[in-house]
Nucleic acid binder design. Structure first.
Lengths: 204, 204, 204, 204
DNA sequence: CATGAATGAGGATTCATTCAT
DNA sequence: TATGAATGAATCCTCATTCAT
């Protein structure tokens, strides 16, 4: 009678430990043995749960992304106006970088390693594309309803938002946090709100 | 009489080639032999001009940083008002990411994977620190003169600007460019300008 | 259940093989792959048991030194008179060079070329210092009790003995053995005995 | 009209500088560029005067050995009795290690590298053989004339003398000098004299 | 299932030697 | 003759992955 274990659960437990190690040492700087040691299991055991090193990263990234996607829709649908939805979305992403801070490091690691593996053309545009799509639609709607300054190019603006999201993550990764997170979040939101929203309409 | 070579010039030529290789293959994914081959020289020759792999990057980084610092002051000093200076500074950095695109991409790549051994004399925090200092001073001045919305926390705002700078670079690294650069630059500048500047004062 | 290996025993087996390779090819001339091949294992496996090349030697050196130190005290304490102890000590060291011939040869080889980086924890001077200390004390005692010719300077004489020890080893390394070892040992002992001991007292 | 230089003289000047570098860094630890730099010439120039790195060492060794051989005969022939000749010879060699101290380091380096180069059988016995031959003859003569203790095996004793010579050199190389050289020399000579010479005969 | 011992491909770096000038 | 720029063979060491137990 084989020992019965919840493979899924153990995989999650392992990758969760791995995440903290990745966070500390960076993905390329982390050895499989580091992970095994931190998880208190044998090196070989890792391969019972994951195909290879990248697979651990991928697994944890997927968790991150799934949660992100699911929560995103929820966050948007609370509000009704396009501009409100848009701000809610942005606020959500900023909050998400705080809540899933450890994963954000992985997020960067994931892209870097993915880029390195595939000589050319590993395009993340598909993943980002989804996000930009949502943003663009909201911007368009907001511009049509007069809530958002029509002077903005929707594609450029949505790309900017995604870039800001990435930037906040990586800058924190590089320098650590120097400013209080919630203050930082509010600052960012204010800047975007002031910069984008047509005041008369919002207030009216 | 020996062959006479302009060592400085050749070092620059090599590191310049190396940079494009780093861009294509990523820093960790680039072998010294790749660089040598691309530069049309022997592997050993690299070590006549550079201490090690990181030294090649450091060399280009210095060039980048020197140019950045020098141009920055120039860009700022054209204008007189704090808010104008601030916008000029932001505009300059955005333009700089376009002009030095390869360098930016490679640094992001390097720093996001180096983490573990970030002590080799790449003055990342020094560069960011300097930048934030300048930003904060301008924001403060602008707030005192009433040009910039006093509701903003200067430290948070300057960190946000630097984050946006990083974000633009890394997002481009991940996805390539999907939006016209100049349009993108203008969009970012507009958002920041609208979001931060007190209109009455500016127009007055 | 993993393969269980007596790491200590395997390390000794490997280093033991390595020693013979060092002896044959010289320390600098021995490649890690030579050792691996001779030991019938993979190159990487060496690093499971030893930090680096020098560590293999260090391991054998420790074994040698431990055995040397332990046996030394034993050899001395059999006799009671200082002069007898001294001769026993010298006799012991001469015998030791025969018994541990390979080790001796390799150390000479190592130390005569290492010079530049003699800081890695080979306690050469410590070993010599200890030895000279013991020798000097015995000589002094012997001189006080009238067994040893008081004309000798104790420090110089003990340094001479250690030099002879080194000389016997290195000469054998260079030329191989041309004279029967036991005869050689006896000759050396006689010379020293005759040269140092005050006859009247010994015989009396 | 070519620049006329005394090739021999320049070679000697170079190898003389090289010697001091070898002494300091050891032969394997000395780079050709180190020598060139110390000699104030270009790296390539070394190859105008020497076939390769080993050739520089060999050159300097030859100088040493030639001087040694020539002076040796001189030293011996001053005295007439075998035992006096023998002691003079030993005294000469001891003095020689003091006078040619720098070369002694090279002497060891030379043998080590020679051993490393030739997988097997690089036998120094020919060189040492000459020395041992002389020693053995003197010992035999001394024993026949009753000056030297007939209990000694001449071959073993002469090998011992050569070993002591080597030992003094290498021990000094390892540990530096701790005892005054002249005192050390006298001590060694006394030990040998007392140990070997039949007193009655010498004095008689 | 679990393990960790074994592996070897892979890469950075060194340095004696060559050779164009 | 003198040079030093260029070279690439050679070697150490790392670490993801495999597999016998």
């Amino acid at each position: 009678m084989p020992k019965i274990v919840d493979k899924k659960a153990k995989a999650r437990a392992i990758s969760s430990v791995a995440l903290t190690v990745f966070r500390k040492r960076g993905y390329p700087g982390t050895r499989m043995s580091d992970i095994a040691e931190a998880a208190g299991i044998g090196k070989g055991t890792l391969y019972e749960y994951f195909k290879d090193k990248a697979d651990i990263l991928r697994f944890e990234f997927d968790r991150y992304f799934e949660h992100f996607s699911a929560s995103l829709l929820e966050a948007i649908n609370k509000d009704s106006r396009p501009s409100e939805k848009l701000l809610a979305l942005i606020d959500f992403t900023l909050g998400h970088t705080i809540e899933w801070e450890d994963h954000c490091a992985v997020y960067m690691d994931y892209f870097s390693s993915a880029r390195a593996d595939q000589d050319e053309g590993f395009s993340l545009s598909c993943m980002y594309g989804q996000m930009k799509e949502i943003l663009m639609n909201l911007i368009h709607e907001g511009q049509e309803s007069g809530e958002i300054d029509p002077a903005f190019n929707a594609a450029a603006l949505s790309e900017l938002f995604v870039s800001i999201y990435d930037g906040i993550i990586i800058h924190r990764l590089f320098t650590g946090q120097t400013v209080d997170r919630e203050l930082f979040r509010k600052t960012a939101l204010n800047l975007i709100q002031n910069g984008m929203i047509v005041q008369g309409v919002m207030k009216g």
